[in-house]
Design a protein around this nucleic acid. Structure first.
Lengths: 210, 210
DNA sequence: GTCTATAACGTGATAGAC
DNA sequence: GTCTATCACGTTATAGAC
């Protein structure tokens, strides 16, 4: 039988899990190791026993967070069997579900990169991930065919990420300005799963002067 | 004659200016008052003499930053004489110029709001700013006329902010993944001044099944 | 108003008993 | 492995001379 779901058994995992939650919510500078220990239900000394230092623990967390976040892009963007449009639908569906579950991830990654650009950027080696993907080839082909106009690949990627991720980065603001409670906000996000591909296609395929 | 440009005269202003730069770049938790004092070229004690505490100084800075950032929206969105399309062009032109000059503002505001949602959200009372503006009325009218489809006002505002602001929030990442140096990145941003309105119109006015 | 010196406190990390 | 107690240090804030 497979290993039982380890909720309380492994204290190392308990600490890591607590660290993930607290770091994601408050960022490196604002979290105290005591917060993590408390959230894990263990003593402060144990944290250093298992992970040596706050920094070491943090590196593990941000490393895994970035990796987990990016890995789905790779799978979706490099599938030879799906069209460009289908990839957009898959990306929206997958990432909006993910971000509804863990909305703190983008602002966590972005603000930590701001605080440590040189070190963290390289972990995020997404250059080839985006620009040398099957997706990029399909995109380029449609540009050459004149189907896509007024939109380079890099501008397109900014638009994609902006439409996909920004509503989560700005969620506290959106909730406030739109007077949405948590469930109403979440409904809006889920709605975007079907609307995002529509908007992206409009951006790609519409030509001015119709 | 108007008051001379005060670069060195007023030390209070010197401190405030240094605080703005440092806070914008590193956020509240990661900045030390010593950093600010050093950047201002003054002694640490003077900071407390003028502003009592790090927190008080911070509140002044974030307050003014938010206000400065939002105030142009009000002017542009409530002009009865411009059309919806013209407002989009004005917003893009104004804000992209602003953000090229001060790219740290959005990530600063967003990450500080994350760390203190209840307190800071209310300062950002942009509800009526967006949803009770002339812009909102013009938008609503086009929805009723069937010109705008598959796009509510709140979803539209998320898209607008996402396309406008996200490339600056994610600038370190974009520079890394697109292998752009600073000037190339800036050119891309300036290009968006004319592309943004095009894309927004595509999102608003295209109907599926053309 | 501006400085130096220092107090007061919070936080990361460790020693050492169990 | 896990805990309590404590150290070592950095940072905010203030006292007091000038």
């Amino acid at each position: 039988m497979a290993k039982k779901k380890e909720l309380d058994i492994n204290t190392e995992a308990k600490i890591k899990n607590a660290a993930k939650n607290v770091f994601h919510k408050k960022g490196f500078a604002a979290t105290r190791t005591r917060d993590i220990a408390e959230a894990a239900g263990i003593n402060l000394a144990l944290l250093n026993y298992y992970f040596r230092s706050k920094e070491k623990l943090f590196h593990i967390i941000i490393q895994e967070t970035m990796q987990d976040f990016m890995k789905s892009f790779h799978g979706i963007f490099n599938d030879e069997k799906t069209t460009l449009d289908e990839k957009l639908e898959l990306v929206a569906s997958h990432y909006i579900d993910l971000l509804v579950e863990q909305p703190d991830i983008p602002i966590f990654i972005l603000s930590e990169i701001r605080n440590n650009p040189e070190e963290l950027k390289e972990k995020f080696q997404s250059r080839h991930l985006f620009f040398e993907s099957v997706f990029a080839k399909q995109f380029q082909k449609e540009v050459e065919q004149g189907k896509i106009v007024n939109l380079s690949m890099s501008q397109f990627m900014m638009n994609l990420m902006g439409l996909l991720v920004f509503p989560f980065v700005a969620s506290p603001l959106i909730k406030a300005t739109s007077e949405l409670d948590d469930t109403a906000y979440q409904e809006q996000m889920l709605q975007r799963k079907k609307l995002f591909p529509i908007w992206m296609k409009r951006i790609m395929y519409t030509k001015e002067g119709n």
